[in-house]
């Protein structure tokens, strides 16, 4: 599904990613953990194609295609979805109108017939029901006046509607209280499937109590320094990121010796 090879990326001339390697297969959930400033969000932004992130070396293959060559909207149409850490407000643009535009852009790209307003609305209500979310967000403008929790739920709802092949969740748990966290996690779990890969980026192990990943990667200073299963997350919780970083250094030193 996704193969990241020796990815280097800079922001404003400063190198943030220093050679990331990662393989994510269909049906797998990978978690990327790391301290602040380690490059987690940069990785998400590079995958989604945000402006201002310069890839200086490496390659990203998505379903065998060069992802970095595609425009952001093309990536989305090809099935890459990013749940934003800070979803923006778009005043005056109705949620239904927005999501219908997105849905139809993607359907059109795939040569499928576009949905009319009623079909789209029916789909939205269905998805909300599955996610146990209230449909009052449909009557509001995109994220306008939403609380932090509502914004994150809205991201999960959009993901459910757009049915991506690869979902990148950028610190979706940040700023959530425990109830909102559960709703979000339940939503994510409901969307897990054999054809869908997920990259869950988080600072805290807390989220992984609810979304159990197949793999956990530790990103420190722009490199993945450790990979393991969910036990690794628990270990990190106990010992902190410094431990992982030092272990990696020790390993590196050991292999040299």
């Amino acid at each position: 599904m996704l193969e990241i090879k020796n990815l280097h990326a800079s922001v404003e001339g400063k190198e943030i990613l220093k050679g990331v390697n990662l393989k994510v297969g269909a049906g797998e959930v990978h978690s990327i953990m790391g301290p602040n400033g380690s490059g987690k969000s940069t990785l998400a932004s590079v995958l989604a194609g945000r402006d201002g992130y310069e890839v200086t070396a490496g390659q990203v293959l998505y379903k065998g295609k060069d992802l970095l060559e595609m425009e952001p909207e093309e990536r989305a149409c090809e099935g890459v979805f990013m749940a934003f850490q800070y979803p923006v407000e778009i005043p005056g643009v109705g949620s239904v109108q927005f999501l219908t535009a997105a849905l139809n852009a993607i359907r059109k790209h795939r040569g499928k017939e576009e949905y009319d307003a009623l079909e789209a609305l029916t789909l939205f209500r269905e998805k909300l029901k599955i996610l146990h979310m209230s449909d009052d967000l449909l009557g509001r403008s995109v994220n306008e006046g939403f609380s932090g929790g509502e914004k994150k739920k809205n991201e999960i709802f959009q993901m459910a509607v757009l049915e991506p092949s690869l979902a990148v969740l950028d610190e979706t748990d940040s700023g959530l209280d425990i109830d909102a966290l559960k709703v979000v996690a339940d939503g994510v779990n409901a969307l897990r499937g054999p054809k869908r890969a997920m990259l869950v980026i988080t600072h805290y192990q807390r989220l992984l109590n609810y979304i159990v990943p197949d793999y956990v990667h530790v990103l420190v200073d722009g490199r993945i320094v450790k990979t393991g299963d969910k036990e690794l997350a628990l270990h990190l919780e106990e010992h902190g990121y410094t431990w992982a970083g030092e272990r990696a250094l020790a390993d590196a030193a050991g292999s040299k010796a």
């Binding site: 989604a48 194609g49 945000r50 402006d51 425009e71 952001p72 909207e73 990536r75 989305a76 149409c77 979805f81 990013m82 934003f84 979803p87 923006v88 778009i90 005043p91 005056g92 643009v93 109705g94 109108q97 927005f98 999501l99 535009a101 997105a102 849905l103 852009a105 993607i106 790209h109 403008s141 959009q158 757009l162």
Partner: peptide
């Protein structure tokens, strides 16, 4: 970027935001 990430092209994104 938010619009684009949802599959909406540049032009349509501007129209959408301005119409709002």
């Amino acid at each position: 970027f938010y619009c684009q990430q949802r599959g909406i092209g540049l032009e349509d994104a501007i129209s959408l935001i301005v119409a709002g």
